[in-house]
Design a protein around this nucleic acid. Structure first.
Lengths: 186, 186
DNA sequence: ACATTTATTAACATCGTGTTGATTAGTGAA
DNA sequence: TTCACTAATCAACACGATGTTAATAAATGT
């Protein structure tokens, strides 16, 4: 029992059309009618695969973030020593490769939740790694974690939306310094 | 020549209804019809005052942020020494007073641009105050500014959305420490 | 080859939008 | 108080997006 190729074909066409449109206009102005037209299929067909455009968006984000997580984890083979400089560098380079998607998601006004989902991933990661002794002794852990998570996501967002004004390895180096200063590394 | 009281009355009713609805449901699900109904006025009347619901939202945000800026600036009478601990404390307390509005704006999914506008204000402020000598020597100023601005906005957002789990003065103290660590204060 | 699944087509009711024209009511100023 | 002006109301309109349906055609896996 294999997958019906018509399904894959249709879903690919829908996602492709959706991304094209996202690069052109705000999410709020994209209609199911537009997507179907661009994908060369009947509007009814869209509803056979997705509940509405929000559902479609959600699925697209899910797929992409799964890829990001894979890269983040891959280079840090040793889970106890994370992040490594290499894992940070690999991640910045990953963003470089997928700049189109991330620009699209971050540029688009009224984009529900994409930034939040990046942030959530970051909070989870930092919570496991932050060192609360030394310089951070006596601080509220939650505040520190939130502080750092927002800072890092903000940097990445800035870097992407400004078309990567510094090379990936410089960004990685400066991030490395800021993590050290706040004792987020192991 | 004074202002027609009918205009004020109508606009207040519209804004009031809008805020009520924002506390109940996502912005995307709020219609002009709903707002008018809740405000007890004709839908046509809405269009006499605002272009659409986005325009209304924009005006509401504008008014509120003007108030925030006034507080931020008020306590730091001396412009060369800013931020002061007092100005930070005053700001956290301001958020406490207006928790309803900020919760509403930050909770609401698909809220266009509110967070970004807070962030922009912060970037501007930090850019003028950050100290690039000492610990920050050799770093890219833009990266540092973005890092800190996102961190601070993130903390505030976390604090508000989590119903202020620590008192305003503790938040102010911890923020003060983090600013010192990264030499954002004067 | 055949049963099953998917896609197409056209139509439908429903809802939100933004605008219009005629009418009513409230307002500020003389 | 009167009066000109302006705002609000009401009903109606065309338009476009939504989500669903039923009949039909096409593609697929076995």
């Amino acid at each position: 029992m294999t997958v019906d190729r018509r399904i894959l074909k249709t879903r690919e066409a829908i996602k492709k059309a959706f991304f094209d449109l996202m690069a052109e206009k705000d999410f709020k102005d994209i209609t199911v009618h537009l997507i179907s037209e661009r994908a060369n299929l009947n509007r009814g067909t869209f509803y056979l695969h997705y509940l509405d455009k929000f559902h479609l968006l959600d699925k697209c984000i899910e797929e992409q973030l799964a890829g990001l997580l894979r890269v983040c984890a891959s280079t840090g083979a040793d889970q106890t020593h994370f992040p490594t400089f290499d894992s940070i560098l690999a991640t910045t380079e990953y963003f470089e490769e997928h700049i189109l998607f991330y620009t699209c998601m971050l540029t688009n006004e009224g984009m529900p939740s994409f930034r939040d989902r990046l942030h959530q991933l970051m909070v989870k990661g930092i919570h496991e790694q932050v060192n609360m002794s030394g310089i951070n002794k006596g601080m509220n852990k939650e505040i520190l974690v939130q502080f750092m998570a927002s800072a890092i996501v903000g940097i990445v967002e800035w870097w992407i939306l400004n078309k990567m004004p510094v090379p990936a390895n410089q960004l990685a180096r400066e991030l490395w310094t800021l993590l050290e200063r706040n004792q987020i590394r192991t």
